[in-house]
Design a protein around this nucleic acid. Structure first.
Lengths: 260, 260
DNA sequence: TGGATCCACTGGCTCAAGCCAGTTGCCGAG
DNA sequence: CTCGGCAACTGGCTTGAGCCAGTGGATCCA
């Protein structure tokens, strides 16, 4: 009869218990987005634990992306941004010249202001993962363009585009920073490479330090890592872009018919 | 001439410095995948810091997914699993009856053993995000099937499928656990809903506690959150599935023609 | 030989204390 | 009234200590 379970409650570790209480308060609406949590010291005192333990609870919630500490100000319930839906991830030839990339279109649709910046254009020898996708020998010369995409001034994604030097030599693609992403396929068409197929390979991971810093990512936000390959009507790849996107702002939609 | 920069090295916080050293050792190959790191106490002593500080360094690397602590054994360099590429995410009618889902195909291609388990089949009223996608009023009765997917016994993804009760009533879909995922579209076709279009909406995020526990996710691994909607030839949705997948094992490939 | 036990080792978690570094509002000098 | 500086907050990070809970090899007993 003594047994071992008078308290099935299992009274979790204090840090997890505090995290649970706060999580419930957030999900239950008692703490709404943007609200300030009690300070670490207050939490510690009110729960009768050391400050480190309260801190650990907050760390857990931060990792879950529920909450965001701001040095000197406090800990705030994260405002969940609307996901940017890069709607129906289909590519139409019309987009080719329009200069309206899926990114710009979506940002404008959300009533925000898009901005794109080409940070660098360089000629390098192709890294393995690029060469593979371009179906060229590793080490072949390629042009690398690094583009940053902003919404209301906040960086949202980085796209690094590679094209074989042999194809783009002499074209503005090879040396000009000023070139909207949307119109780039027009340039390729002039070069004899009309865009006809695209392939996208998607994975997700935690950002590296550099990415987290560059994209001003809060803790606990993963990135979507998307390799985009553009191919001509004979399925010859002529351009690959690696996008690194904030996962908390990004959703990708694909829509496709089922084949026979 | 005195200026302010005799030490541009900036001597980072000790925990970050230790993390950096370990990271370099891992990336540089001195510590190869599967290798055991020095214990927390050793690290602390050899760097002249408190154990907590060494611990913090390891926490950083864990969050980056570089390293995995195992209670009672040590901290190990993560073995980066090969991504499972759910190749060319196109759906062919042939798949309809074959019982060979993209998941099973990929796992077998990797020389691993797939397994699928239907954990529950229940009748519930549709949550908002399901109703929206099924284009039915929220609260309408739907059948919910929860499927778990394993490779070599390890859980890789969970798929929760919802279909309107009105459609599947009487069919094995509505009450049988034993039903391969691949063959489900055959059933729907019998019911007058041939699969003709699919839509997939993809985002990524950190897992909830339950998901992390259920999928035995190590710290610092995000999940891919994929809503899959199956539609018939008139674009009427009849089935939606929400997949939650380990991002460290998953890559999704889409291949599509560019429209005019 | 085979099995249970023990112990030295690992990470997990907490405590109490202290100093540093952003942020903000208040208050007093000009 | 304005501006500078201070003080009282906030989180960030470290220390050194202690106990708990898995792991796995050595050891001892039947």
């Amino acid at each position: 009869m003594p047994a071992k379970a008078p308290t099935p409650k299992a009274a979790d570790k204090p840090s997890r218990e505090i995290a649970r209480l706060l999580r419930d308060a957030i999900n239950g609406g008692e703490l709404s987005p943007g609200a300030k949590l009690p300070s670490e010291r207050e939490l510690a005192e009110s729960h009768g634990v050391a400050r480190n333990t309260a801190r650990e609870a907050i760390r857990l919630l931060t990792q879950e992306g529920l909450v965001q500490p701001e040095h000197g100000r406090g800990v705030f319930v994260r405002v969940r941004p609307k996901l940017m839906r890069f709607g129906r991830r289909r590519y139409s030839r019309a987009m080719r010249q329009s200069g309206l990339s899926p990114f710009r279109a979506e940002v404008i649709a959300q009533g925000r202001t898009p901005d794109t910046e080409c940070r660098s254009v360089t000629r390098i020898s192709a890294p393995g993962e690029v060469a593979e996708r371009l179906e060229i020998p590793a080490g072949t010369d390629v042009v690398r363009r690094e583009n940053w995409y902003y919404a209301d001034g906040e960086p949202m994604q980085v796209g690094t585009t590679y094209s074989p030097w042999a194809i783009v030599e002499g074209s503005p693609i090879a040396d000009t920073k000023k070139m909207g992403h949307g119109s780039i396929y027009g340039r390729f068409e002039e070069l004899g490479y009309p865009i006809a197929y695209v392939r996208e390979e998607i994975s997700a991971r935690m950002p590296t330090h550099e990415e987290a810093a560059g994209l001003s990512l809060p803790d606990g936000v993963p990135v979507i890592d998307l390799w985009h390959t553009g191919m001509d009507d004979r399925r010859r790849p002529f351009e690959v872009t690696r996008f690194v996107m904030r996962a908390d702002f990004t959703a990708l939609d694909y829509d496709m018919p089922v084949e026979d």
